[in-house]
Design a protein around this nucleic acid. Structure first.
Lengths: 206, 206
DNA sequence: CCAAAAGTGGACTATCCAGTCCACTGTACG
DNA sequence: CGTACAGTGGACTGGATAGTCCACTTTTGG
C-alpha cells in the first residue's frame, strides 16, 4: 500500500496521523477510539483501515513516530548547539515552556506505558528517541569541554543520562500532579551541577 | 458499606486488592479486566461490586493506594534515616534493586497516566506520594546538614525535588526501554552532586 | 435454634468498539 | 470517452467487558 499514494492520499494519511495525535493527547490512549479519530479528521472507517491495514495498533505506532519526531524538533535550534551556557539557558526555557504549555497531555508517555510493552515497534521508537536525545545532550557537554568551559575528564555519558532522566522525571511529575516545579528544579539543578562540575570524573560510591 | 465488614469480608476485600494489583502489574491497566481479577482472586462479579460499588474505577483507586503505600515502605528502613553518606548509598542500592526486580511492570506509573487525569482520587494519591517521598529526601539532606556534612545554605527543597525527578525519570526510562542505566546514572550523579554541593544556595540563570 | 444480615455464585444485559464488507465517487491516463 | 484503480462512505458483525440481578449459602447475634 505505501509508496503508491496520490497527493490526495498522502494528504489524507497525514491528516489522519495528526488528528489522531491530537485526539490521543486530549483523551489519552485508553479512552481514544477510532470513532474519535474519524470525527476529528472527517474520515470514515474504511479510510482508517485503508491507510493503516493493521488497524489501531499500526495507527498508534505512526502517531508515536510522529510525536517522537516533534519532541526533539520542538527543542531546536537550541538543543542542536548547546555550546555556551547561554545556549543551555535558552534550551532550558524552551523545554519548560513546551511542557508547561502541553500541560496534562502526554503524547508519548502514555503511549509508551500503555502500548509500549506489548508492541515491539513502539519500544523501538522510544529507545531511538531516548538515544538521540541523550546524544544531543552529550554533544552539548562536549561542546562546553571543547570551549574550555568544562574540564575534559568528565563522564559525559553519565552526565547526559542523568540529565535526561531528570527531565523525564520532571515531565512525569508534571503530568501526574500538574505542577512544573519538579521539572524546573531538575533542569536548574542539573545545569547548575554541570556548571559546578569541576572535580573528578564522576566516580561514585560502591 | 465500609466499616461493617466481618473478618471474612475484610479478608476477601484485601485478597481482591492484592490480586488486582498483581493482575495490573502483569497485564497493564489497559488490558486488565475484571474477569482477570475474578480468576486471580477466586471471586465472583458480585463480590467485586459488593466491595467496590462504584466498579472498576473504585477498585483501581484502591489498588493505587495499596501500591503507593508499598513504594515508600519498600525503601525502608533506609529512606527513613538518610543521615550519613553510607545510608544514602544503601538507600541507592535498595531503590535500584527494587526497580530492576520490578522490571517492566509499573504498578503506579501506568495507573497515573491512564486513570490519573480523569479520576480525582487517583491524582490525590500520586500527589501525596510525591510529597511524602520528596519530604523524606529533604529530611535526609537536612540530616546531613545537621551532621555538618553539608553546608547549611543549601536549597534543600530544590535539591530534593530535582533528585526525586531524576529517580522518577530513571524509572520511566527503565519501564520504557528496559534498561536501568539511566536510573543508576540519575542516582549516582544525584548523590555525587549533592556531596559536591559546597557552594552557593543554588541560584541559577535567568 | 432461628431470623437477619453479610457474603457468594453466576447468568444475563447493555454497550461500546475494532474490524469487515460492499457499494459509490473521483481521478489518472490511454 | 472509458476503464481501471485509488479514495471514500457508512452500515453491519462479532466479540469483549463493565455492570445488574436474583437466588443461594454462610455467618452473626440474640
Amino acid at each position: 500500500m505505501p509508496g503508491e499514494l496520490t497527493a490526495k492520499g498522502r494528504a489524507t494519511r497525514s491528516r489522519i496521523v495528526e488528528g489522531a495525535a491530537a485526539v490521543l493527547r486530549e483523551k489519552g490512549v485508553g479512552s481514544a477510539t477510532l470513532d474519535d479519530v474519524m470525527a476529528r479528521t472527517r474520515t470514515s472507517k474504511s479510510q482508517l483501515f485503508h491507510y493503516f491495514p493493521a488497524g489501531k495498533d499500526e495507527l498508534l505506532v505512526a502517531v508515536a513516530q510522529f510525536e517522537a519526531d516533534r519532541v526533539l524538533e520542538d527543542q531546536q535550534p537550541y538543543l542542536g548547539c548547546l555550546d555556551s551556557w547561554e545556549a543551555w539557558g535558552r534550551w532550558r526555557d524552551v523545554v519548560i515552556e513546551r511542557y508547561e504549555a502541553q500541560g496534562e497531555q502526554c503524547p508519548l508517555g502514555s503511549l509508551f506505558l500503555q502500548v509500549g510493552r506489548s508492541t515491539p515497534g513502539m519500544r523501538a521508537i522510544v529507545i531511538e528517541l531516548t538515544c538521540r536525545w541523550q546524544e544531543s545532550l552529550a554533544r552539548g557537554i562536549r561542546a562546553l569541554q571543547a570551549g574550555g568551559r568544562l574540564p575534559a575528564d568528565l563522564d559525559v555519558d553519565t552526565r547526559a543520562a542523568a540529565l535526561l532522566a531528570a527531565i523525564q522525571g520532571g515531565v512525569s511529575i508534571l503530568l501526574s500532579t500538574g505542577q512544573s516545579t519538579h521539572l524546573r528544579a531538575a533542569l536548574d539543578q542539573g545545569i547548575a551541577d554541570l556548571r559546578r562540575a569541576g572535580s573528578g570524573s564522576g566516580s561514585v560510591m560502591a
